[in-house]
């Protein structure tokens, strides 16, 4: 079964007097356990596509299927539930809750999911150790480096073992060493946990980690490369 299937997606934004086609008849299918990079210059449509796949944005036309479920017609509540249970998000700007510690940021999503207190504690300890943040559990975001914050964001995204992780420019604010560490973590999670990754990036180093590279330009897919085969 496909992890993600998009059929003929269109999305137009109005900017001033101009209509901008962010997605222009985009169709693609991503297999489960895939590791895909969406590459495009700024304004190429990769974030819009990522948002459509994550149910954060509704396309003007076309269909979006995630884990066999059509999501473009779901209600707000159902979309929220889908994101909570099946999708993990990693953002460029980390986007942690500033008043919560690393552990609390990770546990917050689990609490919403209804995980018990003991379960939350056990999982958050394990995942923070896995992303290399053992001993930093009680630090707040402001007390951590960019790389550490992004690791917390990754821990938060994957702690509930979502089938799909969507990452939007996850390394944009990181140095090359930290970027490599993060991508190696993604690869490990992909290979050991079978998590599907869709990463929007224009960082060539990140693209190098992907099994499949989809290039976009002006809202259209212009190239789809299977890098393993290559």
């Amino acid at each position: 079964m496909s992890a993600v299937r998009c059929i003929d997606l269109c999305k137009t934004y109005r900017q001033g007097d101009q209509d901008i086609k962010a997605l222009d008849h985009v169709s693609l299918e991503i297999a489960a356990k895939g590791f895909v990079c969406l590459s495009a210059p700024s304004g190429g449509g990769k974030t819009t596509l990522l948002n459509a796949i994550g149910g954060l944005d509704i396309p003007d036309s076309g269909e979006v299927w995630v884990a066999g479920q059509r999501i473009d017609q779901l209600s707000k509540g159902a979309l929220a539930s889908l994101r909570l249970q099946q999708i993990g998000f990693v953002f460029q700007a980390y986007n942690l809750i500033p008043v919560l510690s690393a552990r609390e940021n990770v546990e917050f999503v689990m609490q919403v999911q209804g995980v018990s207190k003991d379960g939350r504690r056990e999982k958050s300890t394990a995942i923070l150790k896995e992303v290399g943040l053992a001993g930093l559990e009680d630090r707040r975001p402001a007390e951590m480096s960019g790389g550490q914050q992004q690791r917390v964001a990754v821990a938060r995204a994957i702690v509930s073992k979502p089938a799909l992780v969507l990452a939007d420019e996850p390394t944009a604010n990181l140095d090359s060493k930290t970027s490599d560490e993060l991508m190696e973590l993604f690869v490990e999670l992909n290979e050991h946990h079978g998590t599907t990754f869709v990463i929007a990036t224009h960082d060539r180093r990140v693209m190098g980690y992907a099994k499949r590279l989809i290039k976009m330009l002006d809202g259209r897919i212009v190239d789809d490369i299977n890098q393993r085969a290559a």
């Binding site: 994550g54 954060l56 707000k76 509540g77 929220a80 539930s81 889908l82 994101r83 909570l84 249970q85 999708i87 998000f89 953002f91 986007n95 809750i97 917050f108 999503v109 919403v112 999911q113 938060r156």
Partner: peptide
Amino acid sequence: IVMSLGLT
């Protein structure tokens, strides 16, 4: 952000 994480 928290809505994107699944909070209603």
